[in-house]
Structures are given as C-alpha cells and as structure tokens.
Design a protein around this nucleic acid. Sequence first.
DNA 1: TACAGTTGCAACAAGCGTGTAGCGACTATT
DNA 2: AATAGTCGCTACACGCTTGTTGCAACTGTA
Lengths: 182, 182
Amino acid sequence: MRTILEAAERVFAANPAATMEQVAQAAGVARTTVHRRFATREALVEELTGWAARRFAEAVESARADSTPPLVALYQVTANVLRVKTNWWFAMSRTADGAHPEAVRVHAEVRDQCERLFHRAREAGVLRPDADLDWTRRVYYALIHEAAAEGAAGGGDAEALATRVVDTLLRGFGSPAAPVIA
Amino acid sequence: MRTILEAAERVFAANPAATMEQVAQAAGVARTTVHRRFATREALVEELTGWAARRFAEAVESARADSTPPLVALYQVTANVLRVKTNWWFAMSRTADGAHPEAVRVHAEVRDQCERLFHRAREAGVLRPDADLDWTRRVYYALIHEAAAEGAAGGGDAEALATRVVDTLLRGFGSPAAPVIA
DNA sequence: TACAGTTGCAACAAGCGTGTAGCGACTATT
DNA sequence: AATAGTCGCTACACGCTTGTTGCAACTGTA
C-alpha cells in the first residue's frame, strides 16, 4: 500500500523510533492493517528503503551524467537527487547504513558514477587539478544533504537549491583576491 | 562517574538506541550501578548533553574569535571544535535538538559568534561581498560535521582537518578560470 | 442474492527495556 | 575491630511495543 509507505516516511522522518501505531494513525488505517501488508516493522522499513533506493537510482540515471558536459551533468544530478531526497528524507538516510543489499548496490554505483564525473570535471578544468576527489565527493554529499534539509522544510525548488550547491562546491565563499590558508 | 559518561558516549555513538545494559557493560559495571548514578536513561543522556555543551562552549570561547583577525579566528575555532566533536560525537548531536536548555543557550551563543565572525570576514574581504551568510554558516557546520566524522574514524589531527575545512569553505573546488554556473 | 476480499476492532501472548529493592562482598577509614 | 560507602548480583514489577487471531461490517462483483 503506497499510502502506508508515504505515511511511514512522514512519521519516521519526524521520529525514527516511532511505533507502528503512529504509522497506522498517520496512514488513516488500523495497526493490524499495517501488519497485514508488512509482516514486521523491519519489513516495512526495508520496503521503504528499497523504494527510496530505486527512486535515487532513477534520479541519478536520468541525468545521463556520463554523456553530458561535466558542469551540466553536475547540475542535473544535483537537482534530480534533491527532488528525491526532499521527499524521502528518512528512507534515504536508511539507504546508506549497509543493511539493505539493493540500497548498497545503488549507492556503490552512484558513488562510482560520481567519481567518474568528478574525474571528467577535473580533466575539463571545472575542478582544480589538485582537488582531492574523495574529499570533494564527501563535501558534495554534505552540501546536498544540507540543501535537502532546507528543501524538506519548504525552502525553495530543486533547481534553485542545485544552483546554490554547485556554485558553493566550485567557488566556495572566499574572495578571489583573499589570501589562502593552505 | 566519568567512566560511565565516556562509555555511554562510545555506545550511543555506535547506536543511539542502545540499552542501559550495553552502556553498563561498556563501562565495566553492573546495570544497577549505572542506575545508582543516573536515575533514568533520560537523565544519563541529559548529563552527557550538558557535558558536551560545556566542552563545546569552551572550545569556541578559547579561540577568542572576536579579537583576532577573521581568518585566524576561523581556523582556531574550527580546530578547537573539531577536537571536541571528534570525541563527543553522539553527545554533540544531542546538543542541537532543543531538548537541553543549557545546550540551546550555548548553541545560540555560538551561532551569534559565528555570524559576527562571518560579518567581520566579509568586511575584511575574506568572504565575498555577495556571500549569503546564513547559507555560509550552514555549509561551514556541514563541513565541520564531515571532517569530524573523518576525525572520529581516525583520519588525521584537528589542525590538518581544520585547514582543509577552511580552505574548502573559502575556495571550493573549482578552477579559478572555470565558468560559473550562477 | 451470494460471494470474495479488505478493513476495523477487540483481545491476547510474548518479549524487551526500565526502574526498584534486598542481600552479601569488598574496601578504606577511624 | 567497627563502620560507612560502593559495588555486583538476583529478583521482581511495570509499561510499552510487537505480532497474531477471530469476528463483524463493509464493498464491489457475478
């Protein structure tokens, strides 16, 4: 039942330790009905995780990151992922903890794709030649996470957020003329 | 008991839903002993939160962010906070959720100080004139969070991490010659 | 009308974590 | 030696959540 999954997402996003009773209430059904569809609490979270992982994979894939110019790909991937992560906040947080095999696979693929994209970006001069691509990727993830939090709170559309993320990733906040610490 | 608090930090960092039994075991004492010092689980988490909040406040305060050049202050605050956050990962995550009055106060003060610092940095030309200081601060927090995760996993000292955080915040990863998206 | 499918509802069993209490052993102090 | 203090251990009560079951009511279909 799609309704239950969406309700679970809302409830668990607010409180990861919420009970089945709270989920059922949010979905407008009886607790036993939730158990009829999802045998255990764990099964519910699993299906939620898988659902989000598939959406995540679609979001990244549809950006065609391997066949468009790096800067364009970076923007498209960012915007697409933000759209998913804004609506599936809790479920997306579950895709990263290594419990769900499909989620692990998706994350690994996305990570590979991200690394390939950053390599291309560096070769194309979009990223600095001395950029640490692992740290770059982690900062990129953190920026998306932060922007998604803002988006989930109702702070603007995915396009505007993506623009800001990419701009921040590439330029930072310092003045070009300012001295550099390292 | 300091031993119990440190054990609780370790256990809760690995699993926020851990039981008193697990905390006791990690501390090398019986569960009843934990209850003798901390009447309830909530009281334990509260004291842990307060402890971390005080350490956090000390870390920021000792950097003298109001009376040193912005770039120096930024570096010092970053390094000091990283030292605390690396060792009190769970407790620091609790200082932000608004449950602990003292933690709320500390966070508000730190936030004010951070904003003042960024204002000064912008006026001094360290930050760009058009930098959105709220977004800047949130990115700064996210970078510290990410660096602390690396530090907690044993990835280098606070000074090196701080250097990287500040460098990333100011410069980003893009080539100075590259086109800008926004 | 007869039927299958789904749901709400009440009730129940079981497990788990929490919090409390009593008892005995150990240690340091006087 | 006597005492106070701390700790481990066992046992228990309590509440909460989970998961299951049976039954009645409702809906759409044949």
